[in-house]
Design a binder for these strands. Structure first.
Lengths: 225, 225
DNA sequence: CCTGTCTTTATAAAATCTTTATAGAAGCGG
DNA sequence: CCGCTTCTATAAAGATTTTATAAAGACAGG
């Protein structure tokens, strides 16, 4: 079996060095990022088997990085943090973290927790693509194809389509869509949805006047099929 | 949706009580065992969704119980232990434990770790559909099917049908229906009901003139069957 | 300063809800 | 059985809400 690849996202060089030495001597391949943004880019470029994420990053909150990763990244994410605060732990775990260790941590324990976390996922191939009829979406690569042709979508269009395809067949209410894409402050901006559903339809539907994928459920929301 | 079942294996009654109270108030079903042997029997008899295992049991070593469980049990096992010893932690995790918490633990954190552990295994199929003859309704997805075909209902029609199907067989009075769908200000608008029952019948009944699902109880209300 | 994207505004079209009208069915006392 | 009343069903017009679309303005990144 190929060596498992681990991405470290941490701004402290000495921690990264320590982790690198320990992980490499245990036959892991190590990739490093010093900022959250860099970590997101590296993860998207070549999804690792596991991510070690420091929650206290300078550029973005680690919680935010975690949420953004979890939109498409399914492998284990272990949080490393100096904060032994219960609220932080609960928030991280509920945002999709696989495990949470407080610094300073014992390397032997960390390695055991890495083994435990990877044990569960190893075997099942990272599947980040969803298909529906002639449309396919790769959540990790952020690529949408129609009949195999790559479509050019803006960021918001992509997020909206991803949300639709992750909930194929379900009616998603206006409020839910607005909350997920724009946030809680935008629950009344239904017009945004109309505009973006319109542009999405123009791009993914054969005949935008008679949409087959994005169905409007009048008074409620939209449904993808 | 069914409540997840958690098996507690711990010899300290006060810990079991504490866990039971916390878990049950979070809508888990709790089963308890005070010895490792009893735990193994209970787990084998009816495999729970998750096991909380104390490593310091009197009859057998918790590590041994863990190994015996892991010979066949695939769901998460979270270890609770007073021992904060690295060797114990590593041994437990490498023997198949999903997580390891040292006592005293924070209940909020434990609950979050339980959610994290169960999230991965439960591909929960959202048990929100009701069936009645050839009609099925998915309350979460807001989809109604007749003989497997998706029906197009308006929002009000859907709400009304959902109310009927949630109360299958019961006679629902005009006033109750009006109150639930339109609100207290509409208790006298019986005509609304006639109109909407009419359109619903056209959509869900084989022969709307001889309705088999929505039965009128003259002078009282309607009944769904 | 340009370009692409997002936000906002305006307006027409579509869908849905409400109201009105009318006819039929059911019950009941004489 | 008849006439009366009450309740129900259905169609259809009118009113209202919701949606689609274009396009102008705002804004950020390069």
């Amino acid at each position: 079996m190929n060596r498992a690849e681990i991405l470290i996202i941490d701004d402290e060089p000495q921690i990264r060095k320590l982790l690198q030495i320990n992980l490499e001597s245990n036959n892991y391949k190590v990739v490093q990022a010093s900022t959250g943004k860099e970590g997101l880019i590296l993860a998207a470029g070549h999804p690792p088997d596991l991510i070690l994420l420091d929650i206290g990053l300078p550029d973005k909150s680690g919680h935010q990085i975690l949420q953004e990763l979890r939109e498409w990244y399914a492998n284990p994410i272990i949080i490393l943090s100096v904060r032994d605060n219960e609220d932080d732990i609960i928030a991280a775990l509920d945002n999709g973290a696989t495990d949470y260790l407080t610094k300073p941590f014992r390397t032997g324990e960390l390695l055991a927790r890495i083994r435990s976390a990877t044990r569960r996922t190893s075997g099942d191939p990272q599947h980040t693509t969803l298909d529906c009829g002639n449309i396919s979406i790769d959540l990790a690569a952020r690529i949408v194809k129609r009949d195999g042709e790559i479509l050019k979508l803006t960021s918001t269009e992509f997020n909206l389509l991803a949300l639709f395809m992750k909930n194929e067949g379900k009616v998603l209410t206006h409020q839910y869509l607005l909350k997920e894409i724009w946030g809680y402050g935008y629950l009344t901006e239904t017009q945004y949805l109309r505009v973006f559903v319109g542009t999405l339809r123009k791009k993914i539907e054969e005949n935008p006047n008679n949409p087959l994928h994005i169905i409007t459920e009048s008074g409620v929301g939209y449904r993808f099929q």
